[in-house]
Amino acid sequence: MSLWLVLAVNSVTLGGLLFLLSAGFSLIFGLMKIPNLTHGSFFMLGAYLAATLIGWGLDFWTAAVVAGLLVAAFGGAIERLILRRLAGAELAQVLVTLGLSFMVADVCLKVWTGDPIRIDTPRALAGVASFGGLAFPAYRLAISVIAVGFAVALWALLDRTRLGAMIRAGVDDPAMARVAGIRVSRLFTIVFCLGAWLAGFAGVIGGPILSVYPGLDQEMLPLALVVVILGGSGSLLGSLLGSFVVGFLYNFGQALFPELAYVVLFLPMLIVLVVRPQGLFGRPAV
């Protein structure tokens, strides 16, 4: 019985981390239609940068924010200098972002060597929280809280602010938004930076659990893809629910059918793609 409870709680905490990772991917894909395969690299780069910043004496949370900003600046540069020129050319975008992810991986290997680097859990959250005789790492529970906090903040941003209204207009109909006087190109940069920041930040937040090592990018990217396809691109609620669904599939799949762990993870994605290509919560393409 306790196994199920532990798995359920772990599913929620993994879902939290996946939401932080995939919310940005979903926003970028929803607004700009760019399948950003560099997203896993943003995640890994954030973790590496934070490890260095923490080594220089910054505390964990400051390092997380700053590393996120550095990744956002990198993302902004990619959008302005490269992706902008490839608007509408999906194959080119896929190839460029994939190529960039390999390049980032090589550069990280040179800078941070191939050795895995651990990131310490922030001291205040290092302990174990006990409920009814079951122990849960406090830090993992904190991730879920952070993820829900971000979900609310992002929802408020999209739903309650002028910027959010413009982004929504851009997602729904970029041409019309342009006619209405919205500078969609600037929106693109803002959203890309925001998405990159979220991924970089998620990398740092995931650091104490995953540590950081070559290949982390390629481990995380498919999870983000599954979340976004399940949830529906451009839909924040979709990402949130998709993340928790994937969290549950991952945990229960690996525990119950370890040989079929990937089938359990990817089969639902396949079915959704065939039956409801816009995702569970996405709106069908106009």
Binding site: L14, P116, M220, N251
Partner: peptide, 29 residues
Amino acid sequence: STPDYTPYLAQISGADAVVQGFAGSNPLK
């Protein structure tokens, strides 16, 4: 390539010890 080992950790009980044979960066994680 398993980012999160908790589904497996949750199954550890009823033993005197755990033997792990991971390689690369996995032992650390």
